[in-house]
Design a protein around this nucleic acid. Structure first.
Lengths: 157, 157
DNA sequence: CATGAAAAGAACTCCTT
DNA sequence: AAGGAGTTCTTTTCATG
């Protein structure tokens, strides 16, 4: 992971469809070399995939909500995660250092869907309480930040 | 936005580098037709971009935190948003229907960076209080959910 | 709105340094 | 780890139904 790799990753985060040829021009290498580097970045788990970024409102998911989840003290967390994972409306799920052990972000078309979803989450075994907050607007999301230069090991080379 | 468009968007969310040729095979059209549809989806704001998905830990951003922000009653929200937007460690920013008007998600290499960041946020004019929660683990993030079929208008065609 | 053909460019593999 | 050459595939444009 040198300066060139960092540049490649930054470029691919800004535009995931940048061609190897274009990347090669930007970093001053040839396409096969860049392809080689990208393959290694993927293999080493630095780049884990590529996604089209979609406007949720444009596909009928106009309502976004954050739900904090408080489990029972004796809750089975593996089971809770499994059950949460099965709910496809949950876009992200964090395990937190707080009373609300989990925070999930959900997207639904209508308020009625949100209500149904909350009941479903609240009904999961081991879930004591939920707290839902509606997002009124998304200022920004998934904004890539530059890779810090002071670097860290990442396993296999 | 018909069934074919939905399939294309779903495929591109799952893998943003899928070629037009491959998409064409999957939806039973030719590459130029698919290219045409994708161009329209981009033009209409359904697809807003493409991103490589990067493992934050692998690039030295091992610490993720959620920060709730409570503003003064008389706060200038445009100014707050501007100041928050200038902080590049903030990956996302939501305006919420709650006491904590904003929730931001930040990523930093070290705890010392988080501390510095909290002070910076707390120092923004109009910010009365912040509440930071460390994420102990990310169960999943940015998981694309299928596009609902009962559809919604999205402006220009 | 989709297709087919044709030209340009990119990706991929192999091989050399 | 990078560059060069050659092959294959894709992208892109354009004319047509």
């Amino acid at each position: 992971m040198d300066e060139i790799d960092r540049t490649i990753v930054n470029l691919l985060r800004a535009d995931g469809r940048t061609s190897y040829a274009e990347l090669a021009r930007r970093v001053g290498l040839t396409a096969p070399s860049v392809q080689d580097r990208v393959a290694k970045l993927e293999k080493n788990g630095v780049i884990t995939g590529y996604q089209a970024v979609v406007d949720p409102e444009a596909i009928g998911l106009g309502i976004t909500a954050l739900i904090g989840i408080i489990p029972d003290s004796s809750a089975d967390h593996l089971a809770i995660c499994d059950k949460l994972g099965a709910i496809e409306q949950i876009e992200s799920c964090y395990f937190l250092a707080g009373v609300e052990c989990y925070q999930i972000k959900v997207r639904v078309p209508k308020m009625a869907d949100l209500e149904q979803l909350i009941h479903r989450v609240a009904g999961i075994g081991g879930v004591a309480q939920t707290r839902t907050t509606i997002t009124l607007s998304t200022k920004w999301e998934d904004r890539p930040q530059p890779i810090p230069t002071g670097e860290v090991e990442h396993g296999v080379d």
